[in-house]
Design a protein around this nucleic acid. Structure first.
Length: 489
RNA sequence: CGGGAAGUAGUUCAGUUUGGCAGAAUACCUGGUUUGGGACCAGGGGGUCAGAGGUUCAAAUCCUCUCUUCCCGACCA
């Protein structure tokens, strides 16, 4: 990424936007803070969706769809929840327009008795519905997910990371016991983690959020954090244990085997198009996007080099043959036979788009029975015999996938620092950045102080299976809350 | 909502200080030559200079107001 980070005049945001736009992934719409996801970007989102959806279904979840509009009164049923979202909602107040002298006006006669909120998240609407669906223990667990869009009227927007409208999935489950709901929340967090590591090739830190950073209305928020190339952290997915907060707010009870009426226990969990922002910021370089093979819309691009029609036809024949063979082993490919672009243009073009492997076929290759293979992650070329192609590509795709993950993992390891006093925390943040691990006594006062003075927040209380403990930062009392401080998006 | 920057061709921008024919690169179109790392030559099309008002013989340029976008904070996934 050289020129964007080492040069003080050019910042990471510019580098990131540059890649997003030049790789043809998305652009800012002229409609406030919204994003237009372009076909190539959307193809990546569709891949992400397909894999996650399959993971959800394998663990017993079903998809459903709930309305976009939520009556205002629904939001006021849970006070913490409304505090968290009320400030950033789009509101529908009228149902009709009228045209006067070619000017479109709002018809005041159509003012709604109760305003409708465009969903910022669907807990309230879904729990309103669940009240009708849940009567007995036989209706539980209720494991439902929806793929949808939401609107949050964000003050400051950023492509993929924080747009006014974004695409996401939100799971909402209901359970008979607290233990089962907690298990569900942890299960979903682990599924996200599996996806982010093994498909997106991004190293993660798992843990729980502090009360200050928790989702509005949650008892516990399980989270996954990644570290971007500019050493800022990014929250990539969350899973919330909601206790009985929403079932009490919406009066959702079930009869158990002993004929007792109980409030149900619930969870919600989600990931969004933000994941694509993570993908871009984790792997890309100055040449553009670098996609992990498992999520690339095209895993292989074939580019012909020729100076006459006879050779072009021979290459095309070979290329089609190769694509067929790749297709048989489930490798997606594209043959760029456009005559109006020269090879050099195409090389750069597909690097910008992050296609993991390029095969170049030219007159020399036809003669020698060879192919030129180029891998995007290391930008290294090699020449192989035609017969070795399929096995080479299969191995190389795996190799690229694991190389990207290794690279990202090393980045996190190299940029995670342990400190045990506040001076070192400040020094390390300024000189090195990244994630700072320390112990924390659980007081919000100290959390706020550090946030105000350093801009770093506690991104998570790390899972601590070994039950390690140490002296907590500032207050110096013994604590087993191992936390990560970082500047984050 | 606070601080900063900007709005001129599809895109990136110059031109504004000191008012005087609307510019460049790139992209696009046509023809030709090219093709192993972003080709070249010749020709061509493309503008409400963010909007409104004002000053002036004359405004992209000066003045006033409005709008929008981007960046840094606060907020947030």
């Amino acid at each position: 990424m050289g020129k964007f980070i080492s040069d003080k005049n050019i910042n990471f945001s510019k580098w990131y936007n540059d890649i997003v736009i030049k790789a043809d992934l998305a652009e800012h719409s002229d409609i406030r803070g919204c994003m237009i996801i372009k076909p190539y970007g959307y193809a990546i989102w569709e891949k992400i969706k397909a894999v996650l959806d399959n993971m959800f279904k394998k663990t017993g979840h079903l998809n459903a769809y709930f309305p976009l509009l939520i009556p205002k009164s629904f939001l006021s049923k849970e006070s913490k929840h409304i505090d968290g979202f009320a400030k950033e909602c789009a509101v529908v107040t009228h149902s009709k327009l009228k045209s006067i002298n070619n000017e479109i006006l709002i018809d005041d006669n159509s003012k709604l008795k109760e305003e409708l909120i465009i969903r910022p998240t669907s807990e309230t609407l879904i729990w309103h519905t669940y009240k009708k669906w849940i009567k007995s223990y036989k209706d539980l667990p209720l494991l439902i997910n929806q793929w949808s869009n939401v609107i949050r009227w964000e003050i400051r927007t950023r492509l993929f990371l924080r747009t006014s409208e974004f695409l996401w999935q939100e799971g909402h489950t209901a359970h008979a016991s607290s233990e089962e709901a907690i298990q569900e929340a942890i299960l979903m967090r682990n599924i996200y983690n599996d996806f982010i590591k093994n498909w997106m090739a991004i190293e993660t830190i798992m843990g729980i959020k502090t009360p200050k950073e928790r989702f509005a209305g949650a008892i516990e928020t399980y989270c996954i954090e990644g570290l971007m190339q500019d050493k800022k952290s990014l929250q990539m997915g969350t899973s919330h244990f909601l206790g009985q907060i929403f079932s009490k707010a919406f009066d959702v009870k079930f009869l158990d085997q002993n004929n007792n009426n109980n409030y149900v226990w619930s969870t919600s969990w989600g990931v969004s198009t933000r994941l694509m922002g993570a993908l871009i910021m984790s792997h890309s370089d100055d040449k553009g996007l670098v996609l992990p093979p498992k999520l690339a819309p095209w895993q292989v691009v074939i580019i012909p080099v020729y100076d006459n029609d006879l050779i072009f036809n021979k290459i095309s024949h070979l290329a089609n043959n190769i694509m067929e063979k790749l297709n048989k082993v489930n490798i997606t490919s594209i043959y760029d036979n456009k005559k109006y672009h020269r090879p050099g243009f195409k090389f750069s073009h597909y690097e910008l788009k992050g296609v993991p492997i390029r095969i170049t076929i030219g007159p020399n290759d036809l003669q020698d029975n060879t192919l030129e293979i180029f891998r995007r992650d290391t930008r290294k070329k090699m020449t192989i015999y035609k017969e070795e192609l399929i096995s080479t590509i299969e191995n190389l795709l795996k190799e690229i996938q694991s190389n990207l993950y290794k690279r990202n993992k090393n980045h996190m390891i190299n940029n995670t620092h342990f400190v045990d006093n506040y001076d070192d925390l400040k020094k390390t943040l300024n000189s090195k950045g990244g994630m700072i691990m320390s112990y924390w006594d659980g007081s919000q006062e100290i959390e706020n102080k550090i946030k105000n003075e350093t801009q770093a927040s506690i991104i998570c209380i790390a899972d601590n299976k070994e039950k390690l403990s140490g002296k907590s930062i500032i207050s110096k009392v013994k604590s087993n809350k191992r936390v990560l401080f970082a500047k984050s998006y």
